[in-house]
Design a protein around this nucleic acid. Structure first.
Lengths: 248, 248
DNA sequence: ACACTGGTTTGACCTAGATCAAAATGCCGC
DNA sequence: GCGGCATTTTGATCTAGGTCAAACCAGTGT
């Protein structure tokens, strides 16, 4: 039953907050009722801006919250104590960050904003509590964690058995698809990261990224202008790889 | 309160079943009371043997259960439709398998026994239900998923930024450590997988695995005899890499 | 004991991508 | 609009690891 203290307008406001907040991942599919929604909205309302270049969290920091990325763009890097760092993922609107920290109660990678961003803090203990009460939320959360595992397997496939061209094609198509899901153009977008960061993610050097990008351009598959990318022949990019790698 | 229908002997039996069943991952740390233990024991009692070479599950199969590996050794492979396959992980006693399937309700990789094995089936819906009732179980399950994510990040680091020697050193030390945790010798063990499977996992070819293994042997770091490995200078293997990669 | 089969080792050679270097471009603060 | 810095492009060269090929070995079933 609807809680008496909530008008339909409140509920709509909550829904709006909620759906902006963690769009694709946490909120929408949870199918909460009004009372649940209210709690949910409260829980998910702790907004925190992160300026470009700032850390959302660093490796070693204690787990307090997970973070739903509302707007902006981030990267996560896992570090090797000899200085090497490996970009483990790029995150955009709707992604849920910090899952790595649950295992040991402390973060295992650095997460940095690549442009001015906004996150919702989600205190992890509250999330666990709430998901004990709301089965659909529980299941949804499990799916999100599992999806991350599947995604990582995809990256392992990419790093372990694809050539430079294939990796980059998969990368571009993956970005394209993620933009599409979020309502942006899948064929034209700005890269938020440097060639070096792409290289790190794909296990290649920045020069190789640059060269392959140029080659793709020569072959008419894409147009590159600095950070601006226009995908002209997605089907040819697809052909370069198998489909597996980009449906992550 | 203890359930009146359970004698201390029952409880001990359940504890035994339970701890053999999913040793390091699910049971031990859950800290259940007697009633919980009883339900748990029932839930985890569906034993299923898997013969060497048989599939535990295949990509595409619907998610029914997760599997706690009781005895034996398995590998998971993610497949590329052009035939390439990438080994995504090796599993031993105590590991929890099938987490990838939660995301889409169907498995995304093949899991095959590398030697005769035994698993406990854990119906996923029951696990979700039970973990709503037992917070410590819930949290433990979340940690397991998160650990898998952390592990995968480690593999990404390895594949993305380590040289062949480093990869193999990290691999051997990782195995060594996992055997140690399970009470086996960390310095002497049998590889259950072929050089080709190691290669696939590490993003290298079998010839490279063979060569590097030989080189390690020449340098006195290890002794290899076919599948039998003796680690003679773990500290030197450590020195070859940073520590990060092997503490997964 | 033997032959088959699948796995492993080792060698010779080759190539994708790394490395090094330098020029070109874009971007930010002033 | 200008100077300085970071990023990117492109070229020339080098090398780790891949490829191809042949011998070798270990376990299995007969």
């Amino acid at each position: 039953m609807p809680s008496p203290s909530l008008t339909p307008i409140d509920v709509n406001r909550l829904k709006a907050v909620c759906s902006t907040c963690s769009l694709h991942e946490l909120c929408l599919p949870a199918g909460l009722d009004q009372r649940e929604l209210e709690i949910f909205g409260r829980l998910f309302n702790r907004r925190r801006p992160v300026k470009r270049g700032d850390y959302l969290y660093r490796a070693g920091a204690e787990l307090q919250s997970l973070y739903a990325l509302r707007t902006g763009f981030m990267k996560s890097c896992v570090l090797h104590e000899d200085g090497r760092e490996q970009v483990a993922g790029f995150h955009m609107m709707g992604d849920l960050l910090g899952l790595d920290a649950i295992s040991s109660n402390s973060h295992t990678c650095d997460t940095v904003a690549l442009e001015d961003s906004d996150v919702c803090e989600i205190p992890f203990s509250s999330l666990e509590k709430l998901s004990r009460e709301i089965p659909s939320l529980q299941n949804h959360f499990h799916r999100i964690m599992s999806r991350e595992i599947v995604r990582d397997h995809g990256v392992m496939l990419l790093l372990g058995s694809m050539r430079a061209e294939e990796r980059l094609a998969a990368f571009l198509l993956n970005l394209s698809q993620r933009f599409a899901v979020r309502g942006y153009s899948p064929t034209e977008f700005n890269l938020r990261m440097t060639r070096e960061e792409i290289g790190s993610y794909l296990g290649l050097k920045l020069e190789t990224i640059s060269r392959v990008l140029s080659r793709f351009q020569e072959e008419g598959l894409i147009e590159v202008q600095n950070k601006h990318i226009k995908i002209k022949k997605p089907e040819k990019l697809h052909a370069l790889i198998g489909q597996t790698a980009c449906k992550i």
